[in-house]
């Protein structure tokens, strides 16, 4: 473990808590893409199946349960509890165009061709594009509430911090995982225009307006 990965995991946890808290407090999921949340739940479910087969540390096990529980809780709030506030009209990204190519790529490019490893690889590829429905929804509505942009900033920062972790681990342990690194760079690049808008606008108290 290193400071980059620890702060990355914390940024990830903070993002999830910001979102859950926002939906719970405002009793509304307006402006939130349920599709992205479904993709995240799929990412954690396929990635953390190794909870039953391998133990890394109490921290690792605890965080996996937290990410699984919070992602399903978020889906429950969006599609069950506050479904009346779910914005069907703007959450229209075709997620099958993200799931199927990720699965196909995982079957073609992986470290080992076995069930858990292919699912892990699928979760890595899917996570890199899982935010697209949310970014698409923000661009369609043309704006995002500031709390949603804080959520996106924390979520985008988590994988950016993981890139620093991968550099650190390569420099100190000679450890690297090219699949995770390439997907992580793609994932972080997808946030770049948002990061720019967040830093130039939201931090100056303006509303986040994405070019529609």
């Amino acid at each position: 473990m290193n400071i980059f990965r620890l702060t990355g995991d914390l940024a990830h946890l903070i993002a999830i808590i910001i979102l859950l808290h926002k939906i719970w407090k405002s009793r509304s999921c307006a402006g939130i893409s349920g599709k992205s949340q479904v993709l995240f739940a799929l990412v954690y479910t396929t990635r953390y199946l190794d909870l039953v087969t391998s133990y890394v540390s109490i921290y690792n096990t605890f965080m996996k349960f937290v990410f699984l529980a919070t992602s399903y809780a978020t889906i429950y709030l969006i599609y069950v509890k506050f479904k009346a506030t779910y914005d069907h009209n703007h959450d229209t990204f075709r997620i099958e165009f993200l799931i199927l190519p990720s699965l196909a790529l995982a079957l073609l490019i992986n470290h080992y061709f076995n069930f858990l490893e292919v699912l892990w690889t699928f979760s890595i590829y899917l996570e890199s594009v899982a935010i697209l429905p949310q970014l698409f929804m923000v661009s369609k509505t043309g704006e995002a509430e500031s709390i949603t942009s804080h959520y996106l900033f924390a979520l985008g920062s988590y994988r950016a911090l993981y890139i620093l972790n991968w550099i650190y681990r390569y420099a100190t342990e000679g450890h690297y995982d090219l699949i995770a690194i390439v997907a992580g760079v793609v994932q972080t690049v997808l946030y770049c225009d948002f990061f720019y808008l967040y830093i130039t606008k939201v931090l100056k108290g303006k509303k986040l307006q994405l070019p529609a």
Binding site: D50, M63, K64, F67, Y162, Y176, D177
Partner: peptide, 10 residues
Amino acid sequence: GHLGGTHDEL
């Protein structure tokens, strides 16, 4: 390469 075939990152 992997840490003994398991992934040690979240």
